[in-house]
């Protein structure tokens, strides 16, 4: 459905994208996972025909995004990272505007946005600028869907959004996927990668790894020790000085420590802190463990 080959883009001396390659299958929910400044937005803009790459090719459904940009624009729905709707048009007016631009009507494709539309309906006459964050995001998604695109490009739709609205938004994406729409979505929230079919981990303009979420974590070659104790900060400082520990980071209420299976972390910690109640447990890696270790590997 989408083929990105060797895409590079620089702004002056800053290399935003450095030889990006990936493919997205029809009907797939594909995630670009990475922090701000990784190059996600440049990549979306190139795919959406809004920015020219310095080199490389992108084809969508067999059409080149540069020479055949009209086909791409007709069949792709793009939701930019920043709220891009008309703030002083109402909810209804925004939807009608986007439908008209694409030579269609709200009525014609209403089934696609039905779920979301129900939630927006009470606010139909409110100005877009006056909507809450979660509602703005729902309206933006509706506007990106109104011309019945075969592929959706969603640039950080959940950034700055609270945990509940994020959950709801991913629920909507799962329903759209069932309708057969191909979705490419970017996010800085590592935990959201679990909800994608496949993900690319992106950092400093390059893809560090690309696979199914379970494929990526299964490749992780270090043992992850989950350490829980009372004084986390003290514990962390000590662990970082221990031989054989490759890295250690706080993870919510516990610490994650990376090293070899022969680390004997539990025994050594008991020696250092004989009076403390410290629990050590070996756990499977998650995407965030993997991401951070790939980052440090790439920097070395």
């Amino acid at each position: 459905m989408l083929t990105v080959s060797n895409i590079s883009k620089s702004y002056g001396e800053v290399r935003a994208l450095n030889g990006i390659n990936f493919e997205v299958d029809r009907g797939e929910l594909f995630g670009l996972i990475g922090p701000d400044g990784a190059g996600k937005t440049s990549l979306f803009r190139i795919i959406a025909t809004l920015l020219l790459p310095d080199s490389g090719d992108v084809s969508f459904d067999g059409h080149d995004v540069i020479t055949d940009y009209e086909f791409v624009r007709k069949n792709v729905g793009y939701m930019p990272g920043r709220f891009s709707l008309y703030q002083d048009l109402s909810v209804k007016e925004n939807l009608e505007f986007f439908a008209t631009i694409f030579n269609t009507t709200v009525q014609e494709n209403k089934h696609l946005i039905e779920d979301i539309f129900k939630q927006l309906e009470p606010f139909q006459n409110r100005r877009a600028g006056d909507l809450s964050g979660g509602m703005k995001q729902k309206l933006a998604l509706s506007c990106a869907l109104i011309h019945k695109p075969t592929m959706l490009l969603l640039d950080e739709p959940t950034t700055g959004v609270d945990a509940i609205s994020r959950k709801e938004f991913w629920g909507m994406l799962q329903r759209l996927k069932k309708e057969g729409i191909t979705i490419v979505v970017s996010t800085p929230y590592m935990d959201e990668s679990k909800l994608c079919d496949r993900v690319a981990l992106i950092q400093d303009g390059a893809i560090m790894d690309l696979d199914t979420p379970s494929g990526i974590v299964n490749r992780f070659d270090k043992t992850v020790y989950k350490v829980t104790g009372n004084n986390q900060y003290q514990l962390l400082s000590k662990i970082r000085t221990m031989d054989g520990v490759q890295n250690a980071y706080p993870f919510g209420s516990s610490l994650h420590v990376y090293g070899s299976p022969e680390l004997n972390l539990s025994g050594r910690l008991d020696e250092h802190f004989p009076d403390a109640d410290i629990q050590v447990e070996i756990i499977p890696a998650d995407i965030e463990d993997t991401f951070m270790n790939l980052m440090t590997r790439d920097h070395e």
Binding site: G34, P35, T159, G160, P188, M190, Y233, P250, M292, M295
Partner: peptide, 24 residues
């Protein structure tokens, strides 16, 4: 106010270490 939104996971943790230091 939301100091770590969109920040990469390693820097996010370094930021929290700065918070702990300040608290100490």
């Amino acid at each position: 106010d939301e100091p770590t939104g969109g920040v990469d996971p390693i820097t996010r943790r370094q930021f929290w270490e700065m918070i702990y230091q300040a608290a100490e």
